[in-house]
């Protein structure tokens, strides 16, 4: 039978970017263990509205672990303690009756708080805009089967493409680095034949753009631990190798022109 939990929540409240913010304590009683973490927050919000108080803002959309919109540091861990799970897929049966849960936004210089638990992750879009695509205008493509992709390359490329752009890697990193996110997009495109012609240019511009927003990687590996899609650290090594090559290649090209 379904268990009910009585919990204490300490939730970060912050009115906007200029407000310093503070923790607020809420009681969450009679929470069904079948609820998701976000449904539990829905209930707290219903209570707040009932008491004419301002509900807690948090980001979410698909609630299926695929859109990357939800976030939250739960007891200091990005997306909570469950491995390979987004906050929206975290269920209350993973908590115990009487627990105190601390809920904070993803924290990073490149992710300023918008309000309460909502942060601005548009720096990720800037990285993609700097080169995270294959340039093929609509209509310019030839028949799809003219370019076979070795199954292994396709599969590994897919493992990288599975990144949902949630930013947990950045939030978990002591340096707020975005290597895992950036390398995942690079590996997705750089591993397949279609991505080769822009490979080194892409690597260089994306890494350089990343560095204007985010901290440096010192190989802690916390990003991988927090990643709901278990993106592999190998992609970071792959990115670093390509970046060195890119610097060489592009210099050579520049010398030729």
């Amino acid at each position: 039978m379904t268990q009910e939990l009585n919990l204490t929540l300490q939730v970060w409240r912050q009115e906007g970017a200029s407000d310093p913010g503070h923790f607020e304590t809420y009681a969450a009683n009679g929470i069904s263990e079948d609820m998701s973490f976000l449904e539990m927050l829905d209930i707290i919000n219903e209570d707040l509205i009932e008491n004419d108080q301002i509900p807690i803002e948090f980001d979410h959309d698909c609630r299926e672990g695929i859109c990357g919109t939800c976030s939250l540091m739960i007891n200091g861990q990005a997306h909570g303690q469950e491995k390979a799970t987004t906050t929206c897929q975290l269920h209350m049966r993973k908590f115990n009756d009487g627990d105190t849960i601390v809920v904070e936004p993803f924290r990073a210089r490149a992710f300023p708080v918008v309000k309460d638990l909502v942060v601005d992750r548009s720096s990720f879009d800037r990285i993609i805009e700097s080169g995270g695509y294959i340039s093929v205008n609509t209509g310019a493509a030839s028949d799809a089967n003219l370019t076979p992709v070795p199954k292994e390359a396709a599969d590994t490329s897919f493992d990288a493409a599975a990144c949902i752009g949630c930013g947990a890697c950045v939030a978990a990193c002591p340096n707020s680095a975005a290597q895992l996110f950036t390398s995942a997009k690079l590996a997705h495109l750089n591993l397949i034949p279609q991505g080769q012609s822009q490979r080194f240019e892409r690597t260089e511009t994306m890494v350089d753009t990343m560095e204007t927003f985010f901290g440096s990687c010192t190989n802690h590996g916390e990003c991988h631990e927090a990643c709901p899609k278990e993106i592999s650290l190998d992609f970071i090594a792959f990115m670093n190798r390509d970046y060195v090559k890119a610097k060489m290649k592009n210099r050579k090209l520049a010398g030729q022109s």
Partner: peptide
Amino acid sequence: DQAAAQGVPFAREYGGLL
């Protein structure tokens, strides 16, 4: 064709075709 050219990782067979 368009999606494959963009790098959409569609499922492939061992020969590398879709």
